[in-house]
Simulated scan of single mutants.
Amino acid sequence: MTEENKTGKASTKAKNKYNAANYDRLYPVVPKGQKAVYEAAAKAAGMSLNDFVVTALDEKIERDKQKEQEG
């Protein structure tokens, strides 16, 4: 095994451990073809698909909170 392979596997293992400790995972399922629409919108906004989805969720929650406060 080369040094590069050892480093690659160790690095991947460390990243996976960090991500498991610091992030929750979501697995949204969307209708066929809709993923491409979301990816294009994210790209147009200069964002990753993940950042786009998280931002959209956060904005929806904030709008709902504001509606509750107004109503």
Results as ranks from 00 to 15, higher is better:
residue 26 L to R: 09
residue 26 L to M: 15
residue 26 L to C: 13
residue 27 Y to T: 13
residue 27 Y to H: 11
residue 27 Y to C: 09
residue 27 Y to I: 12
residue 27 Y to V: 06
residue 28 P to Q: 09
residue 28 P to G: 04
residue 28 P to I: 01
residue 28 P to E: 04
residue 28 P to S: 05
residue 29 V to D: 07
residue 29 V to N: 13
residue 29 V to M: 11
residue 29 V to E: 10
residue 29 V to R: 13
residue 29 V to Y: 11
residue 29 V to W: 13
residue 29 V to C: 12
residue 29 V to P: 00
residue 30 V to N: 00
residue 30 V to Q: 03
residue 30 V to I: 08
residue 30 V to S: 03
residue 31 P to Q: 06
residue 31 P to A: 08
residue 31 P to G: 01
residue 31 P to W: 03
residue 31 P to H: 04
residue 31 P to M: 05
residue 31 P to N: 05
residue 32 K to C: 01
residue 32 K to A: 13
residue 33 G to Y: 01
residue 33 G to L: 01
residue 33 G to A: 00
residue 33 G to N: 06
residue 33 G to C: 02
residue 33 G to D: 05
residue 33 G to K: 01
residue 33 G to H: 02
residue 34 Q to Y: 14
residue 34 Q to H: 08
residue 34 Q to D: 13
residue 34 Q to W: 14
residue 34 Q to E: 14
residue 34 Q to R: 10
residue 34 Q to S: 12
residue 35 K to R: 15
residue 35 K to S: 10
residue 35 K to D: 09
residue 35 K to T: 08
residue 36 A to L: 07
residue 36 A to W: 04
residue 36 A to I: 03
residue 37 V to A: 10
residue 37 V to G: 00
residue 37 V to P: 00
residue 37 V to Q: 05
residue 38 Y to H: 13
residue 38 Y to D: 04
residue 38 Y to T: 05
residue 38 Y to W: 12
residue 38 Y to R: 00
residue 38 Y to P: 00
residue 38 Y to M: 14
residue 39 E to P: 00
residue 39 E to K: 09
residue 39 E to Q: 15
residue 39 E to R: 11
residue 39 E to I: 00
residue 40 A to Y: 08
residue 40 A to M: 07
residue 40 A to Q: 15
residue 40 A to D: 10
residue 40 A to S: 11
residue 40 A to F: 08
residue 41 A to G: 04
residue 41 A to R: 14
residue 41 A to T: 08
residue 42 A to D: 04
residue 42 A to W: 06
residue 42 A to C: 04
residue 42 A to F: 01
residue 42 A to M: 05
residue 43 K to D: 14
residue 43 K to S: 15
residue 43 K to Q: 13
residue 43 K to F: 03
residue 43 K to R: 10
residue 43 K to H: 09
residue 43 K to N: 04
residue 44 A to Y: 03
residue 44 A to I: 03
residue 44 A to P: 07
residue 44 A to V: 11
residue 44 A to T: 12
residue 44 A to G: 11
residue 45 A to C: 02
residue 45 A to S: 10
residue 45 A to N: 07
residue 45 A to G: 06
residue 45 A to F: 01
residue 46 G to T: 07
residue 46 G to W: 03
residue 46 G to A: 04
residue 47 M to I: 03
residue 47 M to T: 06
residue 47 M to W: 05
residue 47 M to A: 14
residue 47 M to L: 15
residue 47 M to G: 02
residue 48 S to K: 10
residue 48 S to L: 02
residue 48 S to R: 10
residue 48 S to H: 05
residue 48 S to N: 01
residue 49 L to E: 05
residue 49 L to V: 02
residue 49 L to H: 07
residue 49 L to M: 02
residue 49 L to Y: 04
residue 49 L to P: 05
residue 50 N to W: 08
residue 50 N to I: 00
residue 50 N to K: 09
residue 51 D to F: 01
residue 51 D to M: 07
residue 52 F to G: 06
residue 52 F to E: 07
residue 52 F to S: 08
residue 52 F to R: 02
residue 52 F to L: 03
residue 52 F to V: 14
residue 52 F to M: 06
residue 53 V to A: 13
residue 53 V to H: 04
residue 53 V to I: 15
residue 53 V to C: 13
residue 53 V to P: 09
residue 53 V to Q: 09
residue 53 V to M: 11
residue 54 V to H: 02
residue 54 V to W: 08
residue 54 V to M: 14
residue 54 V to N: 11
residue 54 V to Q: 11
residue 54 V to S: 05
residue 54 V to E: 08
residue 54 V to G: 10
residue 54 V to K: 14
residue 55 T to R: 15
residue 55 T to C: 03
residue 55 T to K: 13
residue 55 T to F: 01
residue 55 T to E: 14
